[in-house]
Amino acid sequence: RIVHITKTWFNLARKQTYIFTDGDDDELNRTTDGHLINTHCGAGNGREHLGCKMGTEYEAYLASGKKWWCRFDDDNYVNPPRLLELIKRFNWTKDVYIGKLSVPGFSTSYHGKQYNYRFAHGGAGCCISRPLAWKMKPWCGREAIVKTQMEASMNDDCALGFIITALLGVDITLTDLFHSHHENLAVLDPNTFPKQVSLCWSNDNKVDLKNLKTKSKVFDIKEDPSRFYSVHCLAYPKTDFCK
């Protein structure tokens, strides 16, 4: 998956993009100009491992001094210029949480109290403004978010939404420009892809490029199983491998 990212959208935001993983990879670290971060959280997919990784991302963001924390999974194609256009619509000095729901909402018990909350699905990505990120600190550090997850019985992306919408009382700002594998990606109009911020993929759920109205280069499915190369050529046809 990471090869498709480093050959496409990563190059549009090399200075701002960091890749968090669970091992060392000298070649990938060189390719990304030293932007590979080994979380040392372990390779498991349990709540403890994934929460540790999320907490590591969070702490790295706070240390960066940047205005926005925008995070995406490795099955996302991201369009950085469109992402920038989106977040510029909002005042980063305010508490802002941008994303897309997978389900309307959840309820959970935490410290003996029942809470309703909403969360931005991790498979589509989300953005959090800096003031809001700082307010999340009691529940969201590398160790703290795992503790929050365990006590509230939820996954890492749920925990972000729980902290923000339930504990801090900040509602999610919804956008239709983020897309996860929880929706049928094949029904999306491929001619709108250059306007989207993120597009997810999986082996059994991916975008369909058959109805393109342009002469953009479309790669064979075996060469481009994620469709990232083809989507990138649609949005940025002057890229070398698209000519």
Rank of each mutant, 00 (worst) to 15 (best):
63 A>T: 07
89 R>S: 14
90 F>K: 05
51 G>A: 05
110 Y>G: 01
50 L>M: 13
50 L>A: 08
71 R>D: 13
80 P>C: 06
143 E>I: 03
112 G>R: 04
117 Y>V: 12
130 R>G: 11
91 N>C: 09
83 L>S: 03
108 T>I: 04
70 C>I: 09
104 P>N: 03
127 C>R: 04
95 D>G: 07
84 L>H: 10
76 N>L: 12
130 R>D: 11
56 T>E: 12
9 W>N: 03
123 G>T: 05
99 G>L: 02
5 I>P: 04
118 R>D: 10
16 Q>E: 15
103 V>W: 09
42 G>E: 02
92 W>F: 13
101 L>K: 13
31 T>I: 15
126 C>Y: 12
61 Y>L: 01
132 L>H: 07
9 W>F: 08
113 K>M: 12
134 W>M: 14
48 E>I: 14
142 R>E: 00
139 W>Q: 02
79 N>I: 10
72 F>Y: 04
16 Q>I: 11
134 W>N: 12
124 A>R: 01
116 N>G: 10
146 V>S: 01
101 L>W: 04
122 G>A: 03
81 P>I: 03
14 R>M: 15
63 A>K: 13
117 Y>G: 05
18 Y>A: 13
49 H>M: 05
138 P>F: 08
108 T>V: 10
80 P>S: 07
51 G>D: 02
40 H>G: 03
108 T>D: 04
94 K>Q: 14
63 A>S: 12
135 K>R: 14
125 G>Y: 02
44 G>W: 06
128 I>D: 06
123 G>V: 01
54 M>E: 13
135 K>I: 02
5 I>T: 03
143 E>H: 07
143 E>S: 12
4 H>E: 14
49 H>A: 15
139 W>E: 00
148 T>W: 08
57 E>V: 06
85 E>I: 08
52 C>R: 01
97 Y>T: 01
87 I>Y: 05
142 R>T: 02
122 G>Y: 05
60 A>P: 06
5 I>M: 03
138 P>T: 10
75 D>V: 12
33 D>F: 13
31 T>A: 14
28 L>W: 07
62 L>I: 00
19 I>K: 03
65 G>K: 08
148 T>I: 10
140 C>E: 11
29 N>M: 04
117 Y>F: 08
107 S>M: 08
132 L>D: 04
26 D>A: 15
28 L>H: 10
24 D>G: 02
100 K>R: 14
74 D>A: 08
142 R>H: 00
32 T>M: 06
44 G>Q: 04
18 Y>T: 14
